[in-house]
Design a protein around this nucleic acid. Sequence first.
DNA 1: AAATTATGTGCACACGTTTGCACAAAAAAA
DNA 2: TTTTTTTGTGCAAACGTGTGCACATAATTT
Lengths: 390, 390
Amino acid sequence: MPVLLFSIETKVYNLKRFANFSMNNISFFHLCRCFFFFFTIFEIVYFQNVLMSQITLKDIAKALNLSPSTVSRAMKNHPAISAETRVLVQEYAETHKYKPNTLAMQLRTNRNTTIGVIVPEIVHYFFSTVLAGIQQEAESEGYNLLFCHSNEDYAREVRSVETLLDARVCGILASQSKTTEKFDHFQEIIDNDVHLVFFDRICTGINTDKVVVDDYAGAYNAVEHMIHTGCQRIAFLGSTPSMPIANNRRMGYEDALRKNKLPVDKNLSRICDTVDLAREIVPELLRSDSLPDAFFCINDEVAAYCMQIVKSAGYGIPEDISVCGFTNSYITEVTDPTLTTVDQHGFEMGKVAARLLINRIEGKETKPGVVSRLIKTELVPKGSTREIVQ
Amino acid sequence: MPVLLFSIETKVYNLKRFANFSMNNISFFHLCRCFFFFFTIFEIVYFQNVLMSQITLKDIAKALNLSPSTVSRAMKNHPAISAETRVLVQEYAETHKYKPNTLAMQLRTNRNTTIGVIVPEIVHYFFSTVLAGIQQEAESEGYNLLFCHSNEDYAREVRSVETLLDARVCGILASQSKTTEKFDHFQEIIDNDVHLVFFDRICTGINTDKVVVDDYAGAYNAVEHMIHTGCQRIAFLGSTPSMPIANNRRMGYEDALRKNKLPVDKNLSRICDTVDLAREIVPELLRSDSLPDAFFCINDEVAAYCMQIVKSAGYGIPEDISVCGFTNSYITEVTDPTLTTVDQHGFEMGKVAARLLINRIEGKETKPGVVSRLIKTELVPKGSTREIVQ
DNA sequence: AAATTATGTGCACACGTTTGCACAAAAAAA
DNA sequence: TTTTTTTGTGCAAACGTGTGCACATAATTT
């Protein structure tokens, strides 16, 4: 495709202006004009798009000798329209495959049915599960989903918010990226009177509805379970404490230790939320004087790699060392042994979050302040932890 | 929330009608009216939504004593507008946070920048990777993504198409559900002059652009690799042959056998694309007289379960039996041993598909017929296959 | 100086809907 | 019959933007 020095619009405009000279006395200057004229014409035709045709309310009105307003009302079962007219119109619309123009409708009524979703990562068991839940709930309520992916990147998250506000969505479901530390973009959503619900990775700087997993209880139960199976020195592979989900799990972990009268050893509590960190930190812990006899990990992936490292160091799982993950993704079924984990019920979280947002949009959620929903977690014991000693 | 017998619109309408009686001679009938009147008023106020306010072109025009047309042109750097007016308008717009109303723009120009995506499954490594690729390419070109999830269900797929057409998207990227056998809904997309590009699970009944993985070569190379490592009786755990991706892989598998002068045993080629089927079919194959010494599986998940079953039957991997998957998802790293697989380059497929669709939309893809893009596959040998004997 | 051309702006209509209001005709009540 | 009420329909304006055209005024060419 040739490069355009000016936009098509500019070209058309100039063209019209140039064409507007009188043909009385022609100069070299005019000849140049002519040349340019034809060149531009060609270029414009070349780039012209074909317009598509769709039947409208007006067309129906014209065909049935009615006014557009009558047709509009007939389509919506307005009580002032006679039964016969309604049937007439609806049948005509049916046979001619009339599709209301959503754009025009939304413009007129100043309200639409598109909700935006911002996800920090999509190639990710938990978030894709949540997305599936959101999608199902939204679809069943007649809402569309505008999908954005921040990829754990602050700049992309800001751009996503802009995109969604430009598209005039009626609400936004968001989970924060790891790198986000400023919240102006989220505040802007609220300033624009667009409803906002956070899920999972909530934003502490913004006062709005949220749906979170009960991380504290999940961690507490998992750690207590390992204690009941005889573990004494449980290591915690966590994430940055600025993320509430990570901090809550650490608190659940520590409280479970305290409740069972076990020491809370700060050396056993590490930030280790990626595969690379696991390769570094797990061997270090295994080398230390006081060997841990269990690992409680921030997610299933870290847990799976942790298991690999532990096994290759010659320890048996779960005989020597127990391992527990978090999420209950499908990798927990294919490791050897299978991985004990905490189910986060992502699908339900998605449904609850979408439900809450839609209620806000439709004014059905009347509670004035901030609404917080808690999704229950569930311990799923598999092969990487021992049986409870009775 | 109380149940509404009639819609709000109907209520308002009736209200106005009823209010329209003369107050001269009041009867019991009228009193009933009055009661109903107030009840309805209350109900309407109760359900009323707040309208949001946004600054428009008109507002700017009024504030600067210009006409809306001038403001419109100034914002778009139209050449007919003087520099000072343009700066004036753009600065005013900037400070007052003017956001063009996308709906109105799209309505006026009859063209929008939203493309629809239909994915059969989202809690799925490959498809979520493709979605990430689509998202990145679309975002960089200024397009929005309307996300639909058919969940491998024909009815939901049809509904998704309806939704996307109603939303007037300018193009659709789709991957077919397993249960789809009629294609009218896809044809309707084309009949509505909306661009359509299939990816991965293409629809053979529809003549349109597509992007597919080179399944044949992927399968061929994987099987040949296993042959070179000394495997002689390779089983194929495939999927329904009506899906081109499954059929192409079977052909690659068979051709690799033939090329290397190995017999093609129909008993070793099964339909086994779910975990449940694997639990049934793999043990059956292991019991048979002529034990396979390798499994080539349609996806990583089946391969992982296959490995579990093989191991628990007492065979060593890869010493006794080799296993190879397809996709290169993250489960291939956490199985024991790690799983040899074929990388499908999902992210690139997403980008290529989006690129192709956008080119069609913008008229940059001038090739008139059907365009097919092939995404290269790549064998990724890991721990579940042996080293090649030199 | 006169004719021509360039420049900048505004009017009015269009896109496809929805909706307040007016109005005629039919039905019911007085 | 006359008045009131009900019923069904159409007119016109609106949502926020884009664009053809006309029309002044300024700049340039004859």
